[in-house]
């Protein structure tokens, strides 16, 4: 129970810092402005087209939520070291594992809260245009999106235990882009390449996270209805598993690492 309170307290510090920086507000306003402009495009006098607005909105939501979770997770440890906050926190009865769990929880939950606001804007725009999917598929999509944010946040945090904030954020963003955009075709590329290059690509195909398994945008945009529950639950479990692995890597990287206030 005490550990849980400690985790929640550390997560609270992430929220406070996040509110101070106002990242989420900026992105939210940017999303609303972009979608407003897109929705205002005149399409042959027709009121009907809605899917392109939802499609663009969900893509921007994925990009912005990725930016938020990467920046929030990647900068936490370095910032705490520079400010000395990490010493204050660890001087309490709080283990390094709980500290990391709190940092991940704070970054993930704040990115998720902002993401929910992004979804509200997108769904609202879609509803105004008259074409929006049912609540079940939106719920499924948001849950898997949350799982994807969990993975990216945990892996970025793991990188941040051993790298500078900038390097961790860059690599975290790279992992997210690869997992989202390249992984769906990596198997085919590996088969085409063959030889040692094919073996390396095959290894990457199985060793890196497949974020496309957590992306239900097509179902939402094209009104396909909810995904079958079996594959959906498997994807959710996949996301939770990768998040747990990321947190484990973060703990392994951080548990014995010397801490210095100058951040060196």
């Amino acid at each position: 129970m005490r550990a849980m309170r400690g985790v929640a307290m550390v997560a609270g510090t992430v929220w406070v810092e996040g509110f101070r920086r106002k990242d989420a507000y900026v992105l939210w306003v940017l999303l609303a402005a972009l979608l407003g402009v897109l929705a205002g495009v005149e399409v042959y006098g027709l009121a009907r087209p809605a899917r392109y607005v939802v499609d663009a909105g969900l893509l921007i939501t994925w990009v912005f939520s990725g930016v938020l979770v990467v920046t929030l997770s990647g900068r936490q440890i370095a910032a705490d070291e520079t400010s000395g906050m990490v010493f204050a926190l660890l001087s309490k009865p709080l283990g390094r594992g709980a500290y990391l769990a709190g940092k991940w929880l704070g970054a993930w939950s704040m990115a998720l809260a902002a993401t929910l606001l992004f979804y509200a804007v997108v769904a609202g725009m879609g509803a105004v245009r008259g074409g929006v999917s049912g609540p079940a598929v939106w719920g499924q999509a948001i849950a898997l999106h949350a799982a994807a944010l969990g993975i990216v946040g945990a892996l970025t945090l793991a990188l941040a235990t051993r790298l500078t904030a900038g390097a961790a954020m860059t690599l975290g963003a790279l992992l997210a882009v690869v997992g989202f955009a390249l992984m769906p075709t990596l198997g085919a590329r590996a088969a085409e390449a063959g030889g040692p290059a094919g073996a390396v690509l095959t290894a990457a195909h199985f060793a890196l996270p497949h974020l496309e398994l957590l992306d239900l945008r097509r179902r939402v945009v094209h009104a396909w209805g909810p995904s079958p529950w079996g594959p959906w639950l498997a994807s959710l479990a996949y996301g939770i598993g990768w998040t747990a692995l990321g947190l484990l890597l973060a703990w392994l990287g951080f548990r014995r690492r010397p801490l210095r206030q100058d951040g060196s």
Binding site: V63, L68, T71, M169, D262
Partner: peptide, 18 residues
């Protein structure tokens, strides 16, 4: 060796976002 200052969050991603 000094660790560089923490990143500036969204500011780091400002160019691609813009």
């Amino acid at each position: 060796m000094r660790r560089p200052a923490p990143g500036r969050s969204v500011g780091d991603a400002a160019a691609p976002l813009l």
